[in-house]
């Protein structure tokens, strides 16, 4: 099996039914996707698979053989933040930060699809992502701040 993560192709050694989350974290040492629940209910493990936000904890890696995957590391770097990352920083939408990889990847996928989502559409896209720190308002504000701007 082979996947491309953040532009780099990897031949995988993991067994086909290994969750993508484990392949990313344990085999490839890409640690931004987090294991918040490993049951598909919290959203911390979200990555972008061929343009679509997916929960990597329940996704057998065989199901994404050949896919292009983007994790938070691939969206921007400390020296070159994406506008959405910059907005999360500026609006204090990341407190402990554990949920942030899931929110930023999901919102990035949303904005790529729909550059001008309404607040309702943002909420819909981020529903099922849990954040225990921020109370969500700042997260919504950060996404709204870049809606309608180039990513």
């Amino acid at each position: 099996m082979r996947i491309t993560v953040n532009g780099t192709a990897h031949e995988l050694a993991s067994a086909p039914l290994t969750p993508l989350l484990h392949v990313l974290r344990e085999e490839l040492h890409i640690t931004s996707p987090k294991a918040g629940c490993q049951q598909g209910s919290c959203g911390t493990c979200t990555v972008i698979v061929d343009g679509e936000a997916r929960r990597s904890c329940l996704l057998p890696v065989a199901a994404v053989d050949g896919a292009h995957i983007t994790t938070l590391e691939g969206i921007g770097t400390p020296d070159a933040l994406s506008p959405l990352q910059a907005a999360f920083l500026e609006k204090a939408a990341a407190q402990c930060g554990f949920c942030t990889p899931g929110f930023v990847t999901a919102a990035t996928a949303l904005l790529a699809e729909n550059a001008t989502p309404s607040r309702g559409e943002i909420r819909e896209a981020l529903s099922g992502h849990y954040c225990r720190c921020t109370g969500y308002v700042k997260i919504l504000e950060a996404v709204e701040a870049v809606a309608g701007r180039a990513l």
Binding site: T31, S32, K34, T71, L72, E73, I75, G76, T77, P78, L81, Q85, A86, F88, L89, E90, A92, A94, Q95, C96, G97, F98, T100, P101, V104
Partner: peptide, 15 residues
């Protein structure tokens, strides 16, 4: 700016 925010928004904070 939050002192550790840059790590959080880029997935580079090490938990």
């Amino acid at each position: 700016p939050k002192y550790d925010g840059i790590g959080h928004v880029t997935g580079t904070t090490v938990y």
